[in-house]
Design a binder for these strands. Sequence first.
DNA 1: ATTATCTATAGATCTATAGATAATGC
DNA 2: ATTATCTATAGATCTATAGATAATGC
Lengths: 211, 211
Amino acid sequence: MTTSAPPGNRFERRRAATRQALVRAARQILAESGDTSVSIQAIAERADVGFGSFYNHFESKADLFDAAVTDALAEYGEAVDGHLSGLEDPAELVSAGVRLSAGMAESHPEIMEILRHRGLGQIHSARGLAPWALRDLERGVTSGRFVVDAPAVALSVLGGSLLGLLQLGCSRPDIDRDEAAQNMAEMLLHMLGVPRDEARDIARRPLPDIR
Amino acid sequence: MTTSAPPGNRFERRRAATRQALVRAARQILAESGDTSVSIQAIAERADVGFGSFYNHFESKADLFDAAVTDALAEYGEAVDGHLSGLEDPAELVSAGVRLSAGMAESHPEIMEILRHRGLGQIHSARGLAPWALRDLERGVTSGRFVVDAPAVALSVLGGSLLGLLQLGCSRPDIDRDEAAQNMAEMLLHMLGVPRDEARDIARRPLPDIR
DNA sequence: ATTATCTATAGATCTATAGATAATGC
DNA sequence: ATTATCTATAGATCTATAGATAATGC
């Protein structure tokens, strides 16, 4: 998320730091309550930034919160991407993608709470993971691994299911999230055309280690 | 939604009408923008109700919008329920439930926009359709129609997928919604253990006529 | 007599901006 | 000299309530 030495001169770095402080505050708020009716004043205070500075970077609250969602989504993409980079089989990619994302509810709660609140609108967005997921789905189809008529519909199922799983972990704190994620991965793989036994096997394989 | 002669004396009916006007205004706002930062004053104006009356019925904006979501959800439940009442086979119930809901995006846009914005939090709620859906899933399992390890996880997939489909219709207005819904129903039935050919057949059956 | 609605308003809060201050580039 | 941040504030808006008005029950 933060590279150690951002580019630009000291001016640009200070400016970027102020902007980032605002985005980080917005992310916290999105994750904690999802309530964006908080005042700009309160946001600036939380960011420890002068009130007027807000308008140096954003035109409105909605503008800031959009940037915060984009920021969290990018971080999510990088994290998932880093973990999945070794995998080739589309079935393994889908399974690991679902299970890693579920695991991130614990390791990266802020990001996943933001996705739970705002993720639905990103499922089919050209930013975010949609293009990658679509590409993997289509690769699975051409290789014969998957049987899917409409990749966009399958993407709706995968993305929506993941949000449903995040919500399940939130509504029912008692259930075992890893187990639920394995279950879901198995169901989704079977849906995509992987034989049930193989789907179960893949969904229970050890994950690539978490960074 | 509105029975022609609500109970109670004229006082209670007038009171109920005022409350309903506020709820209807809140529903419109939720459906149009989903932005709940609108002022109470603006809500009262839209409801054509005196500003102070708001506080006779609700303690806060959040309180009103919660009531509006509950109201829309109940109406959704009634509509779906009415259409599915003739069906017995759990597989047909799942398929028709998905396809009818997708169709309601056109016939009942306000309700479905509200669900798109607020539905995720209702997937596992004891209000709403969750109990019914869970019961149908479990009936399908005991009758051997479905193969499902964790009904709550399956419910997450069904509910999340439906929201993903609503979102798809919204992000890609060009695609054929009915066809997408048939596709999704087929995929979900297969996931639940229905053989693919049969799943396709069921997902393409004519729906019970829309009221 | 009772109850709900409506109007008016006080006080609080919020937004957007103007002007002063501080930091950096050249 | 330039640029961003910070402080202060004017004006707008919003919330919650108090008191007046209208409708109904008995």
